[in-house]
């Protein structure tokens, strides 16, 4: 959004003191474009909160990225096969949480990458010492990736900040695959997410106003492909898709990712393990 000199904005504010304003911001983080729309009556406050949220997205990236060599997770991936690595308490908490979701989904939500094969599962290969906040990888090929977790986590961190700074109307997204919303738009209409009809035939099922977290995941299930889509694919593919609407962005992202790795027969057993899930849509069209 083009910025205007503060003086001009302030005069506008004085003139239309009761009219809500919308502040829009963008931030590249985690190889995705994050955006936010904050609604309120004090544009200076909205802008300052936007600054803090942008910094928060970068902070989470510095914690959870495995591609930025300076990030905490990247350091862990480099060093933890050689011995115990002391990490931030927050990273330890995130790892504990990821292990929790691994168990809840019967192993479908799995942050491990690399070639451990079938010799070890994540719980066995990842050693955590909460007393000293240390982590060790017990398999030489273990590496961790928070690709199906990080954006939801970042959005929930941002949601906490919105609460702290009393922003009651906002929409945030990361990479147009993870969303979080509260309240309404400046014109009092609800926040709505619309996926392209061509790739999402269940559009009518998302007609309700968005509150809380929503995550869209898709994977190319063509025989030769292992590609995971983080946004709707644009060319003809046989895909598996999931959309989860939950209380938090993280829970939505974890479940929507896990669904893609869960066979339909097991899905009914997995979903009840997630509390406060509002809606789950899973289907496999050819598009």
């Amino acid at each position: 959004m083009p910025q205007q000199p503060m003086g001009a904005r302030k005069r506008d504010y004085m003139k239309f003191a009761v009219m809500p304003e919308t502040y829009h911001f963008q931030q590249h983080a985690m190889a995705s474009l994050f955006e936010g729309w904050l609604v309120g009556e004090d544009i200076e406050h909205l802008r300052a909160v936007g600054n803090v949220i942008q910094a928060e997205f970068l902070r989470v990236e510095e914690l959870l990225s495995r591609h930025d060599p300076v990030a905490s997770l990247a350091r862990l991936n480099r060093e933890a096969t050689r011995g115990w690595v002391q990490v931030e308490r927050e990273l330890l908490a995130v790892l504990q949480d990821a292990l929790h979701w691994f168990g809840v989904t019967g192993g479908a939500f799995d942050i491990s990458v690399g070639t451990m094969g079938k010799t070890m599962q994540l719980q066995e290969a990842l050693a955590l010492d909460p007393k000293t906040s240390r982590v060790r990888y017990l398999h030489p090929n273990l590496s961790l990736d928070f690709g199906g977790y990080g954006k939801g986590y970042a959005l929930d961190c941002a949601a906490d900040l919105l609460q702290t700074y009393q922003i009651h109307h906002a929409l945030l997204h990361g990479g147009r695959s993870s969303f979080w919303a509260t309240g309404k738009r400046a014109d009092k209409s609800p926040w709505r997410i619309r996926l392209p009809q061509a790739v999402f035939s269940h559009a009518d099922q998302l007609s309700e106003p968005l509150q809380g977290g929503l995550s869209f995941s898709a994977v190319d299930s063509s025989p030769q492909s292992t590609e995971l889509f983080h946004s709707p694919p644009s060319s003809a593919h046989q895909v598996q898709m999931s959309v989860v609407w939950a209380e938090t962005a993280l829970k939505a992202e974890v479940l929507s990712t896990a669904i893609l790795a869960t066979d339909p027969a097991s899905l009914e057993a997995v979903i009840p393990n997630f509390s406060s899930i509002k809606k789950v849509i899973s289907y496999s069209p050819i598009i």
Binding site: D42, A48, V52, T164, Q166
Partner: peptide
Amino acid sequence: RNNDWRRPVPVSR
């Protein structure tokens, strides 16, 4: 930079 360098205040004006 392109921001106002402000920190938000957690109470209203």
